[in-house]
Write a protein that binds this DNA or RNA. Structure first.
Lengths: 220, 220
DNA sequence: CCGGAGCAGATTGGATACAATATCCGAGCG
DNA sequence: CGCTCGGATATTGTATCCAATCTGCTCCGG
């Protein structure tokens, strides 16, 4: 939100393709376990296979797709156990990030988070899952990014990415959307008072519910 | 060490190039901050630029190289602060991994670690930094890999990768090599007794010394 | 003497064409 | 009847060529 005056360079085809792929994964256009056909996707995006492949390599490095030489790329699939592991690691990292970030929370940060809440409500009523997940991220990372630990924030982002394909599933249900809205307000309340233990506790409850819900979906 | 009977497939050019690049970074052949000339490297590896670029994309995703469109790739450079951050995150993740792994430690694991120690001593006297760092990794990851949390092990590996370029610098000094040998034996002793707190404490001391030494080098 | 416009040269980004490999399916054999 | 071996087809992997972009230098004007 701050660096909007950088010298605007037209995005390379590869950057474009990468963004499209991420979006396709988040929105459910590419489903977990699905094989990625390079020809078909390249044509759909209007480029050749080269930039597509390079974008896929990045996603491979991030763990969003798996790859077997001469077999192709597959959208990464999470087992119920994987999901639990991701959330266990997230707890470790996010707790640390919250504790580190709290001293740096100012009015700007609070305002940012409030704006994200409003954006989530709007997207929720419209049923715009893509906008919803984007606002959700903005809310949480407004905090994490202020930890003064950019690498930590990056690792957390990676873990979020890994479950992107499943976040959409969670947000499809209106009940979950409402619950998240409530929980976010609880979290923000604790942050307003710079109460680290309460913030962390609220985040734990927040994550526990999500992982529990998605798990029941996965196991069914 | 266990899955050596997989259907051996000749490595693709890209896999080969990726391995070479990693090696070049670990061994110091490519120095932090250095720009990567695609033409020159492709010729050196005997392939065209395409597989090289895809390998670089993977390293980009892992954060080992940085990338600016139309400008090129650069070997990632770590500031002293970055180093401290990496080790702080490592402590978080590795402590968890150790605690999770300890119940799964069996004789095979112990034997593996002992073998790594021997391999390190041999590489140390030969001055073979590449073999040394490989054996060092084998020692530590024999533990981490048994955590039952593959994603956690993967994240830890990523953090190790990020400092690969500086590990070589550390191991160049014979004093450091000797000290590491001693510390490893302390760590292994604690593991033999399945003593989690003592293992974690020994690892803390181990890491603290390394980060301190590298920091003094970086700041000079 | 200093600073900016503009032209080379170098370097990266992308498209196309071709080679290598895996998968699928049916024929032949035990 | 099942198994193995081959070949056809589809898909991925790589090389080469051309286009787009950046960098550094020169030249001109102030």
């Amino acid at each position: 939100m701050t660096d909007d005056v950088r010298p605007t360079r037209p995005p390379t085809a590869q950057e474009f393709v990468l963004a499209q792929l991420r979006q396709a994964i988040v929105s459910g256009g590419l489903r977990p376990g699905e094989q990625i056909r390079q020809d078909a996707l390249a044509e759909r995006f209007g480029t050749s296979r080269v930039p597509l492949r390079e974008a896929l390599k990045i996603l491979e490095g991030e763990g969003q797709v798996s790859y077997q030489p001469h077999r192709g790329y597959f959208v990464a699939e999470l087992s119920s156990d994987d999901l639990v592991e991701v959330y266990r690691i997230r707890r470790l990292l996010e707790d640390e990030a919250v504790a580190a970030a709290m001293p740096h929370i100012d009015d700007v940060a609070i305002t940012e988070m409030e704006a994200s809440l409003v954006a989530m409500d709007a997207a929720s009523t419209l049923g715009d899952i893509t906008a919803l997940t984007a606002a959700n991220r903005a809310f949480h990372f407004a905090l994490f990014e202020r930890s003064g630990m950019p690498r930590l924030a990056r690792l957390i982002r990676q873990l979020w990415d890994a479950t992107d394909a499943y976040r959409a599933v969670y947000f499809v249900e209106a009940d979950n959307r409402e619950r998240v809205a409530t929980e976010h307000r609880t979290i923000l309340g604790a942050i307003r008072e710079r109460d680290v233990p309460r913030t962390i506790a609220a985040l734990h409850a927040h994550r526990d519910h999500a992982v529990h819900r998605v798990r029941t979906i996965l196991d069914s």
